[in-house]
Design a protein around this nucleic acid. Structure first.
Length: 261
DNA sequence: ATGGTGGAGGGTCCA
């Protein structure tokens, strides 16, 4: 089973790239973030041409998440729904969950935070707390076959950024969000990429569009496929698709892939 | 002094 997660920075602007990526890599599951379009504008028919079903949850201009699969997509729910199953309690579209071939999958887009100390920064911290306390703990079990995939907008350690001194106390390295990522991991998750590449330096999933960042590998690793124990045991490999990031009109994030027995 | 690039949308905001 091949699973991928990819922040596409607009699914409409990236429609052709996503189409080609699906055709080439044929994942069993593809989680998308930053689709940036309302549900009526999601290009699901394009992906259906390749045999892919889609579930999606978007809003105008910002955020938006989706899950694609050639298999049946069941038990879909969106947002923070623990109190009222019909109503997302978050005003931003950042979470979608479904079950595919017996595996529970979540596509998550953690808030960026904009700037330390801003209103968006407070929202990011509250959102991460809520993901652990009101979402994972209420709706899932560490014993589940569960994958939490997405753009977490946090670099777990200084090994996950190209210049730790420059990124020190930034929105992706600040202790206030690293500690919250740790709490999410403590639910019972393993970072599957790091599991397979424990000592690898310079492994990143995002590079700035400017300043030749990709060519100089000035990036950060902020996208993850997190696996509960049962899925960790099944995880055979993980890699970052650098080739896709180097294509014309790329997203600023590369796809992250993991395979499971 | 604070760009550069990219997306959405038609202002700036966000990343």
């Amino acid at each position: 089973m091949k699973i991928a997660t990819w922040n596409v920075n607009s699914v409409r602007a990236r429609c052709e790239r996503v189409y080609q990526w699906l055709k080439t890599h044929q994942p069993d599951i593809l989680c998308l973030q930053e689709t940036k379009c309302v549900d009526g504008a999601f290009p699901n028919r394009e992906f259906e041409l390749l045999g892919y079903n889609s579930v999606f949850y978007g809003q105008k201009s910002y955020n938006g998440v989706a899950i694609l699969s050639p298999h049946a997509i069941e038990d879909t729910f969106v947002g923070f729904v623990n109190e009222d199953p019909d109503k997302d309690e978050d005003e931003q579209a950042r979470l979608i969950a479904a079950t595919i071939q017996g595996v529970r999958v979540v596509s998550a887009y953690v808030p960026n935070g904009t700037k330390v100390g801003s209103a968006n920064w407070s929202y990011k911290q509250a959102w991460m707390d809520r993901l652990r306390d009101a979402y994972l703990d209420e709706l899932f079990d560490p014993a589940d076959d569960l994958l939490l995939c997405g753009d977490f907008n946090v670099a777990p350690t200084d090994d996950d950024v190209w210049a730790p001194d420059l990124w020190s106390n930034s929105i992706i390295c600040h202790d206030d969000v690293r500690s919250r990522l740790d709490r999410i991991l403590e639910f019972g998750f393993t970072d599957t990429y790091r599991m397979h590449h424990p000592d690898k330096q310079g492994a990143y999933t995002w590079w700035d569009y400017t300043r030749g960042s990709l060519e100089k590998n000035k990036g950060v690793r902020i996208d993850f496929i997190l696996a509960t124990e049962s899925m960790r045991q099944r995880c055979t490999d993980s890699w970052i698709d650098l080739e896709e990031r180097g294509q014309k009109k790329p997203s600023d994030h590369a796809p992250l892939v993991a395979t499971f027995e």
